[in-house]
């Protein structure tokens, strides 16, 4: 696609953000409506005002959908986020226990795998912690059907809350990675649901055949 052709398309990042924040069922029609209005503004006023309009309405749309979800059904969402927090709290020492169990099983320090031992001690625990956080984020996103990203963003904020300000995340890389992993899990679950919804739209008889 040429640069000129790309510019007459809506901003990709804005469209992607609307896509992941809307439910899989809403995304198709919302993105279509935004695209239709974008095309009309391009014809009337040009690409730059159209892109500005798209960003402004995209951000407002995300905010309006999120606030409607929060105020429309706050308790189920709060319950799911609380479950995620409890899972993380109950499994807080899991990464350390997993690495210690691997080290005891393999005894790498007693043979030639000294390098592996050092690597597991220094990098193993953070890696298992990221996998654990993504797993918890995935559970939360699966339960929060239609509000996957909102639920994982709130859970990420809850994980970061003990620091007082999100700016402190810059100084605590491990916690920052945990927050990113939580939100990433929400994005992955949401995109899986989106591709499933598109597949069903293309082939509506698939479910009947199976």
């Amino acid at each position: 696609m040429t640069r000129a052709a790309l510019r007459t398309h809506p901003p990709r990042l804005a469209a992607w953000l609307v896509d992941v924040f809307a439910s899989a069922e809403q995304a198709e029609s919302i993105l279509g409506d935004l695209h239709e209005e974008f095309s009309d503004i391009v014809s009337d006023s040009g690409v730059v005002p159209a892109r500005r309009w798209y960003w402004r309405h995209g951000v407002k749309t995300i905010f309006d959908l999120a606030s409607a979800t929060l105020w429309g059904a706050p308790w189920p969402l709060a319950g799911i986020v609380l479950l995620g927090f409890l899972l993380r709290w109950l499994s807080a020492t899991l990464p350390e226990r997993v690495i210690v169990a691997i080290l005891r099983m393999q005894r790498p320090y007693s043979n030639l795998h000294y390098g592996l031992y050092v690597w597991l001690v220094t990098n193993g625990i953070p890696i298992v912690a990221v996998v654990q956080t993504m797993f918890i984020g995935s559970i939360v996103a699966i339960l929060a059907k239609g509000r996957e990203l909102l639920a994982t963003v709130i859970l990420g904020i809850v994980f970061a809350a003990p620091l007082g300000s999100p700016l402190f995340l810059l100084f605590v890389p491990r916690l920052a990675v945990g927050v990113i992993a939580t939100v990433l899990a929400g994005v992955i679950v949401r995109m899986c649901r989106s591709s499933e919804a598109s597949r069903l739209r293309v082939d509506p008889q698939h479910d009947e055949l199976n």
């Binding site: 609307v18 809307a22 809403q26 029609s29 919302i30 409506d33 935004l34 209005e37 309405h57 407002k60 749309t61 995300i62 905010f63 309006d64 959908l65 409607a68 979800t69 429309g72």
Partner: peptide
């Protein structure tokens, strides 16, 4: 009004 507000309603 935004498209999001319309769809939420």
């Amino acid at each position: 009004v935004s498209i999001g507000a319309i769809y939420a309603t």
